[in-house]
Structures are given as structure tokens and as C-alpha cells.
Design a protein around this nucleic acid. Structure first.
Lengths: 356, 356
DNA sequence: ATTGCATGAGAAAACCTTTTCTCACTTGAC
DNA sequence: GTCAAGTGAGAAAAGGTTTTCTCATGCAAT
């Protein structure tokens, strides 16, 4: 109730914020020039270390600019230079599970170059996507990075004929574009090889829906390394599926698996829970490895999950540098770049796992 | 290995992308004007529905502009109008647990106004924060929204004397600013009242560190409604604390609680796991309610958690509209606005909970 | 003393829009 | 037939910056 009243209370003059008109006092290069007693051309050249002038003049202009707190207007600069130092990140990954690490990598790589990032979450709405793309193009972004939640799906908008460079990261790209993705095959191999090296022989694979490209790639690597000793259980990306899969495996007659390689961390977590409920000790009796290194799931599982990290931040970093290179007209070879995954060892699998 | 080779292979001319130079062909209002046989002033006025001119002329210009795909350059427009239709979202919430819903709300509210959002994740690094703020100011953002992961902490950067409006959302604001936050007291009351109505009498409260303002507010409401029948267990924000707290409660002699109100969903989840391991049925024997509605935790718990949603998206929406209002010079009353929480009923608590 | 050449600095154009001002023309009224 | 008012459209300035071009000065070489 207090809330509502606060909103409805008629505004009084004295308690109205006056921080709005703001920009009136913005300091321009004109101020710098006149404060330094030079022309704006000279001021500009001094500040940009271009043109010819006396060392003393240059220093004086720079000093005065610093003193009065001059910062060049990026809009004006961009108008002329055709570079806005701005890029757009388009994503349909609402949860941000994949987008946030990618974003962190992009930002990390580009902040030094003075580039800021527009984040546009488009759900799976083509119209919304188009609105965001148009808005970004109007704002003269230097490039766009498209990212998503699936390697084998496109965003619901066509970015192939834009007049700005587009780079794809963790989403399906177009013909002749630059696409960054994780090397799921290598990641899966890493996991299964680790289990094999730890002495596990009956390794089962519980994973997501078979129509996912990543699922097939990971399963392929699993088959290759583990040698078909156990079946692949396809299901959905949920904890309850992991739980249920364990039930299926342990209900079967005969020897039980001594290791589970799971398609993602949620499945792994469900599996670990299922094992605990059956009194099976992890990692003593069964080793479990997940995929994704989604910390909130992997690190909170008891015991914490060993898992495969797709290095999404690095992926974002490279995507950022690539879109920047394209924006600057530097040549970039098109194609799909697979970035290697890394195994994060925690307590859920045996062997010489360091305690965290 | 293949990867490395791909990166190091010398570039051949023919497989180099040529999408870089892009902007050369950008269509300006000059093109529209000459295609329509009018001056640029007339073209501008036609497109903006301003000025005086024949209806026929206006229509023709608009039609031609549409045909040749003219879109006005927001940089040029912004230079003149002092409005960039761009705002910045500053956050120190790395995980995005709180930031993403807020961002979704902001974007949702502002996309119709043509506003795009710079997302700046600043970790807790003051220097990085300053860099991002400066970059945004250079780009003439119309305003900044600061958000975080704690109501009672400031971002590590001073935003109080900027010449653009600043709005705080889910983080501590400065004197005389506009701050949006969730009403944790009301949210907690909602939860405990629900338990009481469901007939629970021995309601325990397991929560986070007492130094958190939210923790104290929620505990206060709990005390008021539940009437001190059970102690408050302060701890940390983790599943394992929830698990351990249940152990503490059930080890104590005497009657056990018949309901747990937990400080967040992770604690609740740990508690539910602990209860299951003791053979205590949820919700039959004990009702459990969490806080946050972090779907990835709440919905995946077995049984799915009833929890308090802080309506962060709505919070973002209001913050977005407010910063826009300030940017447009409309008066806004300063102060802290508490937005009500909502109870999300799932299966973890008794009563007439609808099945999902 | 004239030419040639650095050197330092400013004038002006350009980027793309919007807005204000001005001008030419038409129409209706006296 | 003149004047006022109204109408349609263009010229120009402004916004902040960078870049190219031009100009003036001083100095060394002829």
C-alpha cells in the first residue's frame, strides 16, 4: 500500500529530480581550443597526436584538456570516421547460460579498444530480432556477433547481407561466414579418456535429445573412445532424466556401469542424486563426468562434478577480436573454428583428482 | 591440431572475407532527396511529418525512402538532438542471476522507444567500472541504470555527479536518486502467511548471512508472521548449508518443524535433499518454500519448489521507463520504490497448490 | 636580396540530420 | 490591379569532430 501511495502521490516541485537536463554543460573541443588559445584544428591535432605543431603547444593543449575534463563526443567522431566503436550481441538464449560467458569474453577483449556492446535478447521472435537489428544498424554498429544456445540452429533473422560484418559464436552461421564453436567431439574425448585412464571400463553415456548436433558429436567421440561397451541413453536435458536413466541402468540385470559420462551438468546432477539414493558411492563405485561446467549446477552437486568446460569466454574473446578485425578491414579467413574444451576436475570422478 | 593449423595457415586472397568495407554504400537522406527530386530539407520534413508541404510530395518522399531502404543515421541525428536513444546497464552481478531478468525488463520496456542497451559487467573492479562508464558517457548515453546482486551494496563507482540521469535497480542508490528494489519483507510475509494458511505451525527459517539487509528484512517478516515459534538459522547461500541446517534441526530433541521457509532457492533445495535423505516427505510432512524463483534451481528440485519471485523483470521495466523519463526531462520523484514480490506455487508445499 | 624549404597553425570542408529562416508563388479580397 | 495572407519548398546553420588544404613566418642556401 505504501508503495502505491508513493507512486500516486502528486509530485511536489521541490522533490523532483533535476538531473535530467544534463548535457547542457558538455565540454567540447571548442572549450579546449579557446582555453589553450589555439584553433580547434590545432586542438584536435594536438589531442590525436597528428599533424605538425610545436611540442610545447601540443603538451599545453593536452594538459588543459585534461584539466577541464574534456572527452570527445563519440557520436561526432563516429559520424566522420564511420566507426562507432560499438558492436551488437544478438542472442536467443534467454537464460544467459551460454550468452553471459560469451559476452564476458567479448567485453574483455574489446574494452581495451574502446568498444561497447549492445546486448539484444530476441527470444525466438523474428519480428523482435529484426527490430533489434535495425536499431543497431541505425546506430551504426561496427559489427554484430550472433550467439545462441545451440550449435545447429540459426537465429530467427537473416544477417547474411548486412553491410556490417557478422560473426557467429555458438550458433549456426551462414555460408562463407566466420563461426566460432566449441569442439564437442574433443571435449567428449577428453572426458571419456580421463575415465578410461582412471581405470573405468564400463562407461555409460546419458545424454540429451539425439537431434542435437552436439549430442551426436559427443556420442560419437564416446563410442570411439569407450568402444561401445555400454549403450547411449538419449533423453532430455534435465535432472530428472539423469535420475531416471540411472534407474534404468541399475534395474537392468548384469554388471552395472562403473562410470557415467553425462551430456550436461544437469543430467549428471540428476544421475548423482539417483546414485546416492541407491547407496552407490560417487566417485568410489561410479565416476561421473558432466558437460558444460555450469558452475551453479556443477559446483553445488555433492560431490562437485568433474565436467567439460566449453571455454565460452575464450570463444567470445575470439569472436570479439574477429569482428573487430573485420570492422577495421583486416582480412579474415571464413570458416568454422572449433575451440578446444577443457576438463575441469572436481570430486565426482576417481583417479588423481585434486581436491578443490 | 587441425584447429591450430587453420589459424596459422597463410591467408589466400580468394578466401578472405570482403564484408568489411561495408559502409561505403550507406543510403543517406541525400539519396532519398535526389531520387524524389526534392531538397534534403524537404525530404527530412516529409519523413518526420514536420514542416509544410503538399500531401503528394510527402507521400512520394516516404514511398521512395521506403523503396530504396533509407534508414536515418542515428549518430547524426543524435549529434543534433542530444539524444542517442542508448542507455547503459552497469552491473557487478557476474552470474547474471539478477541482471538478466532486469535487463529483459529494461529491453522490453525500451525497445518500443528505439532505445538500445549497453551491457557492462564490471565484476567488482573500480577501474574497469570507470572505463565502462567513461566509454558510455563518450557515446552519449541518455542515461545509466545501475544494478547488482545485493540491495545493500553499492557498485564500486560513483555515479552521483554524472550529467546523465542514473537509476538504481536492485542495488544501493545514492542520496536523492531513484532506486527500485524488491519488497523482501512483503515477499517473506507472503511465504510465511501461505504456510500458516496451509495449517503449518512449526515453521523454521533457514537463511543466508545475517549481514545481508534482505536476510534481516525477510527474517523480520518471518518473526512477525510466524511468531517466534522456531529459531532463525543464519548461514550461507548454498545448498550444503540448507542440507546441514536440516541436519541441525532434526538432530535437536523435541518436535520437528512442519515447514521450512528458506532464504533462497539453493538453500531450499539443499534442505529438500536433506529431508529426502532422512525419509521426510515433502510436502506431506514438511512444506518448503524458497526465495528468488531461480527457475534452474526451483523448477528442477524434486518436488519443484514453491518460492517467492522478486519480479525482477518488472523492476527492470520500471527502471527503464524511469531513466527514459528523466532523459526526456520529465519530472520524477526521487526515493526508494519497493516493488511487491509474488508467490510462485509449486509442489513443495502443502495446501491447495495447483499441479504444474 | 631572392629563392627554397621547413615549420607551426588556422580555415574550411566533410560526415548526416534537423530546424529555422527565407523566398517565390498562388489565391482571395479590396 | 494591388495587397495580404497562405502555401510549398529550398538555403543555410547547427551539432562536434577530423582532415586536408592553405598561409604565414623564419631560416638557410644561393
Amino acid at each position: 500500500m505504501r508503495l502505491v501511495k508513493a507512486f500516486l502521490k502528486p509530485l511536489q516541485k521541490e522533490d523532483v529530480l533535476n538531473i535530467s537536463g544534463g548535457k547542457r554543460g558538455r565540454i567540447t573541443i571548442h572549450e579546449v581550443a579557446s582555453a589553450a588559445g589555439v584553433s580547434i584544428s590545432t586542438a584536435s591535432k594536438a589531442l590525436n597526436d597528428t599533424g605538425r605543431m610545436g611540442a610545447e603547444t601540443r603538451e599545453r593543449v593536452k594538459r588543459i584538456a585534461g584539466e577541464i575534463g574534456y572527452r570527445p563526443n563519440a557520436l561526432a567522431r563516429g559520424l566522420l570516421s564511420k566507426r562507432s566503436f560499438t558492436i551488437g550481441l544478438l542472442t536467443n538464449d534467454t537464460y544467459g547460460r551460454f550468452t553471459l560467458p560469451v559476452m564476458a569474453g567479448i567485453s574483455d577483449a574489446l574494452v581495451d579498444h574502446g568498444v561497447s556492446v549492445f546486448l539484444c535478447a530476441i527470444e525466438d521472435d523474428p519480428a523482435l530480432a529484426q527490430i533489434h537489428v535495425d536499431a543497431m544498424l541505425d546506430k551504426q554498429v561496427d559489427g554484430i556477433i550472433a550467439t545462441g544456445k545451440r550449435l545447429d540452429r540459426r537465429l530467427p533473422v537473416d544477417l547474411s547481407n548486412l553491410h556490417v560484418p557478422v560473426v557467429y559464436a555458438f550458433t549456426e552461421g551462414t555460408q562463407n561466414s566466420v563461426t566460432f564453436r566449441s569442439d564437442d567431439e574433443q571435449g567428449a574425448r577428453l572426458a571419456v579418456e580421463w575415465l578410461v585412464k582412471a581405470g573405468r571400463r564400463r562407461i555409460a553415456h546419458i545424454t540429451g535429445p539425439e537431434e542435437f548436433f552436439s549430442v551426436r558429436e559427443r556420442a560419437g567421440a564416446y563410442h570411439e573412445v569407450a568402444g561401445h561397451r555400454e549403450p547411449v541413453l538419449y533423453g532430455v536435458w534435465s535432472e530428472s532424466w539423469g535420475h531416471e536413466a540411472v534407474e534404468q541402468l541399475w534395474k537392468r540385470p548384469g554388471e552395472k556401469p562403473d562410470a557415467l559420462f553425462c551430456g550436461n551438468d544437469q543430467i549428471a546432477r540428476g544421475a548423482v542424486d539417483g546414485l546416492r539414493e541407491r547407496g552407490v558411492k560417487v566417485p568410489r563405485d561410479v565416476s561421473v563426468i558432466g558437460f558444460d561446467n555450469w558452475e551453479i549446477v556443477a559446483a553445488q552437486t555433492r560431490p562437485p562434478l568433474t565436467t567439460v568446460d566449453m571455454e565460452l569466454k575464450e570463444l567470445g574473446r575470439q569472436a570479439g577480436l574477429t569482428v573487430l578485425a573485420l570492422a577495421e578491414g583486416r582480412p579474415v579467413e571464413p570458416g568454422v573454428r572449433k575451440l578446444p574444451c577443457r576438463l575441469i576436475v572436481r570430486q565426482s570422478c576417481g583417479g588423481n583428482a585434486p581436491k578443490e
